[in-house]
């Protein structure tokens, strides 16, 4: 069963020719690398493909930065400001691209908000309503990794953790590293609960990058008929 699908998504059945591929996972799960490689592959093969990152719209970027800097964001405003950002990007880029018949790859999607914001105390039911306008993906890759491995990768590569990234606003621990571990653990639990209802394709993120990518490409080929997405070439 698919949950949280609202009717007011600004689209009618049959109108969407494009396909939506989403990658989700903890920080450090390698999902962005995998998404990038999928994009390079499809693009290199001459398919109409577009890549969209979470939290990248210009208009509300300033406000997000300001709120984070002031540490004035509550769970609700944190969630809403990201929803604003997402809605802007969704309506300006993702949905038009899908209507125009593109394959759209999203590095993080509504599930990131569901997992992260529900851990912060927002009601999951409320979150589903707020994001009800978003179309559900055709494929959602979830890059699953043991918590310690994911946390270890982040701590190794980026020793300066940021306040909200570490969930310091939740008061889980005064120690930022400890807080980060607990927070990421809860986010992981939340993701795993969504895996079944939202039909995640769970990927083993402990395998090497190339092996994972081969598997992902096979899945894309089996689930999406790529032929209609080939760009027409005039010689």
């Amino acid at each position: 069963m698919v949950m949280g699908r609202a009717k007011n998504s600004g689209e009618t059945a049959g109108e969407i020719k494009g396909r939506l591929i989403v990658v989700e996972g903890l920080d450090g799960s390698g999902k962005s690398t995998q998404a990038h490689l999928l994009y390079e592959w499809l693009s290199g093969m001459g398919y109409k493909v577009f890549f969209s990152e979470w939290n990248s719209s210009q208009i509300v970027k300033g406000a997000t930065r300001k709120g984070k800097k002031r540490q004035a964001l509550t769970p609700t405003t944190f969630s809403l400001i990201h929803a604003t950002d997402f809605a802007d990007r969704y309506e300006r880029q993702i949905l038009p691209m899908l209507k125009a018949g593109y394959i759209v790859i999203c590095d993080r999607f509504i599930f990131t908000a569901f997992a992260r914001d529900s851990v912060r105390g927002c009601g999951l039911d409320w979150l589903k309503k707020i994001y009800g306008f978003a179309r559900l993906p055709d494929i959602t890759f979830f890059y699953k990794l043991p918590l310690d491995t994911a946390v270890g990768r982040i701590l190794q590569g980026r020793p300066q953790l940021k306040f909200f990234e570490a969930g310091m606003d939740l008061g889980l621990s005064d120690d930022i590293v400890e807080s980060f571990k607990i927070f990421q653990g809860r986010v992981l639990e939340s993701y795993l609960k969504m895996a079944k209802p939202y039909n995640f394709t769970v990927m083993d993120a402990t395998k090497d990058v190339h092996t994972q990518q081969e598997a992902a490409r096979k899945i894309v080929e089996s689930k999406i008929d790529l032929a209609p997405f080939r760009k027409r070439v005039t010689i």
Binding site: T74, T77, L80, I81, T84, A87, F133
Partner: peptide
């Protein structure tokens, strides 16, 4: 520059703050 939906969410952020 914002769609009605984005604007609604933006106003909601302002409201809850």
């Amino acid at each position: 520059v914002l769609s009605p939906r984005t604007l609604s969410l933006f106003y909601a952020t302002d409201f809850y703050d």
